[in-house]
């Protein structure tokens, strides 16, 4: 029982940080590439075009 719990904790501790980093990374990409708020769009305009995001 103890071993089982420990195993679950260890594998969880490996997946969770990776999962969180993926979510954080995708959030950043969405903010920089997709959000259409006009201040953000204008600031990131050239980058969106050059990096192949749908822009206007």
């Amino acid at each position: 029982m103890t071993t089982k719990t420990l195993k679950a904790t260890v594998s969880g501790s490996a997946i969770l940080p990776a999962l969180f980093a993926v979510v954080l990374g995708l959030g950043i990409v969405t903010l920089a590439g997709h959000v259409q708020a006009s201040a953000l769009h204008d600031a990131a305009h050239d980058v969106r075009h050059a990096t192949g995001f749908p822009c206007h």
Partner: peptide, 27 residues
């Protein structure tokens, strides 16, 4: 101003890519 923002946002975008990539590398 325009070019400075482009530098900042390019670095920001690639950091987002990097987070996804390194997380997958760890897996």
């Amino acid at each position: 101003m325009r070019d400075g923002l482009s530098v900042v946002f390019t670095m920001f975008t690639y950091t987002g890519y990097a987070l996804v990539m390194v997380a997958l590398m760890s897996m």
